[in-house]
Amino acid sequence: MFTIYHDFIINTSKEKVFEAVSTPEGLNNWWTLNSKGNPALGETFNLYFGEEYDWYTEITKFSKDKEIEFKTTIAMQEWLPTSFGFKLTEVKPSETYVRFYHKDWTEISQEYRQASFCWADLLRQMKQYLEKGIITPFEQRS
């Protein structure tokens, strides 16, 4: 199995970062078109990117303001059965170290490579959203 990793610092509190990666409103501001779900262990999240990409995940790890992991349950074939998550560590009161991963890829395929690139760009957009309040319109996101 293969894993995508991205580690970076966001200049805001871990509580704000956790909200951005665990709530529908937070996810909609940098990734999804419209997501729905309750941020809690075992809950189902709908990650909606349009009719063709109406995906579902289950929260398999959850520690408020510290860690969240989503296991993909309905998505394009290559994303099954991958999981992605965020581990947060407070460096300073307004500085958070983010360790992102997307694991359990069966091969280093074209989709894996594209996902790695897209995650890097989307995580950069999340950083801009949290640090500067910039929300990239959904149609312009990778």
Rank of each mutant, 00 (worst) to 15 (best):
F8Q: 05
I9E: 10
I9F: 05
I10L: 10
N11H: 08
T12N: 10
K14M: 02
K16Y: 07
K16D: 03
K16R: 12
V17N: 03
F18G: 06
E19W: 15
P24E: 02
N28M: 08
N28C: 10
N29L: 06
N29C: 08
N29G: 09
W30K: 14
W30Y: 13
W31D: 06
S35Y: 08
A40S: 09
L41E: 04
G42I: 09
E43R: 11
E43V: 06
T44W: 09
N46K: 14
Y48M: 04
Y48I: 01
F49W: 12
F49E: 07
F49D: 01
E51A: 00
E52R: 15
Y53E: 04
W55D: 09
W55F: 12
T57L: 12
E58H: 04
T60C: 00
K61Y: 02
K61M: 00
K61I: 00
S63H: 05
K64G: 00
D65P: 03
E67G: 01
I68Q: 06
E69L: 07
F70G: 02
T73V: 12
I74R: 15
A75I: 03
A75P: 08
W79H: 08
W79V: 00
W79Q: 01
P81A: 06
T82I: 13
T82E: 14
G85S: 08
F86H: 07
F86S: 04
K87E: 01
L88I: 02
L88M: 10
L88W: 06
E90W: 13
V91F: 05
K92V: 00
K92W: 07
S94E: 14
S94L: 14
E95R: 13
E95C: 05
E95G: 03
T96I: 02
Y97A: 03
R99L: 09
Y101G: 01
K103Q: 13
W105E: 02
T106M: 11
I108W: 07
Q110G: 07
E111P: 04
Y112F: 15
S116R: 15
S116A: 14
F117S: 10
F117Y: 13
F117W: 12
W119I: 03
D121V: 11
L122S: 09
L122I: 03
R124I: 02
Q125E: 08
Q128D: 14
Q128H: 15
